[in-house]
Structure formats: structure tokens, C-alpha cells
Design a protein around this nucleic acid. Structure first.
Lengths: 140, 140
DNA sequence: CTTGATCCTCCAGTCACTGGAGAATTTACG
DNA sequence: CGTAAATTCTCCAGTGACTGGAGGATCAAG
């Protein structure tokens, strides 16, 4: 199993070098063994763990959630109830974000559509932002 | 026109007191006049400005964008081309956020749906996170 | 052998707040 | 009128999740 330098690991996973060191510092990655000259070395297992972290971050999981997921992944005999609950909570969060963003999009779309390219005096962008009453939705 | 204490302004706008002071410190709000005993006083115009800021933040505008919008709002004779461009850019941003979140939602939904409530060994939540190949989309 | 790439640690900065310490003042109640 | 609670003040440090620079060591290629 070939050992990777931090740069190679970064290239392989798409995670920046300082971010890898940061993950180590907060305990998401184990302390890497070092060469004689103090450089970090990584094996395939760490690369996999890092991809796990990266993917979960991309999906919007917070580091604390990832920490829990990793603890679960490290213990495959455990019930995955917790992982499921975590994902469920996350799903609810995503759905609420989507609907808030949709309301927001409609509003900004409305602002843009109404902008007559005139003066600020008649510009809806300013108007809508200055007065909540112009909103299409009451969701925020 | 009744003058408001910072607490009253906070209550009226839903913006926390330290946040109001923060906005003043970064120049989004003007330096408030003070009472003899050094307490800030606000009038209706500032309340309106703060609602403008708050609303724009809720809509996801960054402080720098808000700064520009405010500068425009402060000068109603100006063309609103800039405000429109800002809003257009923001709209594109919102739309991309929405589609990424939708992809993400489908994926997390899939993870949750596949969780057999068994052991981590066979848990899709863990599996999907560990291996990108399980993803429904290639958008991330 | 030298040059440039890579790595190390430490520290400071980012964004948009948020909150605590400690002191002063104002308001409400009895 | 006295006191206790609420409000405000400033200053400073912390949040999350990185990001980047300084200054120095080491490695790989020509």
C-alpha cells in the first residue's frame, strides 16, 4: 500500500493541504505518522476517510455531525439508527432551506422583472428591500 | 418623531443589539447620536435603514452588496442599473443554490430511504458518504 | 550543486455576527 | 426616596470552517 504525501493526498481528494492539517488538528483525521524529516504520510484508509469527510461536507453536514458519523462508521456492528436520525434531521434542514430559497428567488425575480432601468426613485430592488410589505411571501 | 433606545430598535426590527452595534462599527449604520449618558438614540429613518439591511441579509445578500445598495438608496437620482445588476447576479446565485440543494436533497432522501435500520455494516447512509459512486448525481 | 517545489509550524485573517466581563445609568416597585 | 432589576456602555474574545502568509527546512530534478 503506497504511502502518500500530504500534497498527493490533497490532489487525490480535492481537499486543500491546510484543510487536511486543520482536520487533523480538530481530530477528524488521526495524527498522521511522519517521515524522518517530519513530513506527514497517509495510507489508503486515511484517503478514504478524507473522501468521506469531504463528501459529507459537500452535502452540507456540519463537522460535529461528521464526527458522529465517523464514530459510527468506525464501529460497523453498531445500529445505524443514529446515522439515520442524523440524515433525517439533515434532510429536514435541506428541505426548509430549499423552500426559503424558493420564496427568496420569487421575490428577487419579481424585483428584477419590475426594474424599469430608470432611476433609483422607481427601482423595485431598492423598494422591496426597504419595505417588507412588497414581498410576495411572508415566509421570512 | 419618537427616538428609540437601542433595545427598542432591536425589538422593532428583530435585529439583536450587538448586531446593531456591529453594523454601526462597519459603517452600514451611521454613528448614532447619544444621550447625555452616552446611550445611542435612533429615529425612524435608521429603523427603516436597519429593516432594509435585515431584509437584504435575509435574502442572502452579502454585506458588501448591501453597502452598495444602500449607497444607491441614499442617492435616489442615480440610475438603478447597478442595483439591477446586483440583484441579477444574486438571482443567478440563488438559483444555483437551489439546484444544488435539490440534488443534495434527493441524495440524502435516497440515503434515508435505503436505511434498513440494521447495522452500520449495511447502512446506506454510511455507505453513500464513504463512496461517491453511490451518488445519484454528479453535480458535486 | 543548485534551483524550485514541497513541506513544516505558527499565527493572523475571513465573514457576520455573538456573547461575556465589568462598569455606569435608568426604570420600576414598594 | 431607596434599592433592585433592567438596560446600556466599551472592549475583547470566540464561533465555524477554513485560508493564507511568514519564515525556515527538506526533497527531487536537471
Amino acid at each position: 500500500m503506497a504511502m502518500l504525501s500530504i500534497g498527493a493526498l490533497a490532489a487525490q481528494t480535492g481537499v486543500k493541504i491546510p484543510t487536511i492539517r486543520y482536520y487533523e488538528s480538530i481530530g477528524l483525521l488521526p495524527e498522521a505518522p511522519r517521515t524522518e524529516s517530519n513530513r506527514r504520510l497517509y495510507d489508503g484508509a486515511v484517503a478514504k476517510r478524507l473522501r468521506f469527510i469531504r463528501h459529507a461536507r459537500d452535502l452540507g453536514f456540519e463537522v460535529e455531525a461528521i464526527r458522529q458519523l465517523l464514530a459510527m462508521a468506525d464501529d460497523p456492528a453498531r445500529s445505524c439508527h443514529e446515522a439515520d436520525a442524523l440524515a433525517q434531521a439533515h434532510l429536514a434542514d435541506i428541505e426548509s432551506k430549499i423552500s426559503r430559497l424558493e420564496a427568496l428567488r420569487d421575490e428577487v425575480r419579481h424585483m428584477v422583472a419590475c426594474c424599469g432601468q430608470g432611476q433609483v426613485r422607481t427601482c423595485h430592488v431598492i423598494e422591496v428591500l426597504a419595505d417588507h410589505a412588497h414581498c410576495l411571501h411572508e415566509t421570512h
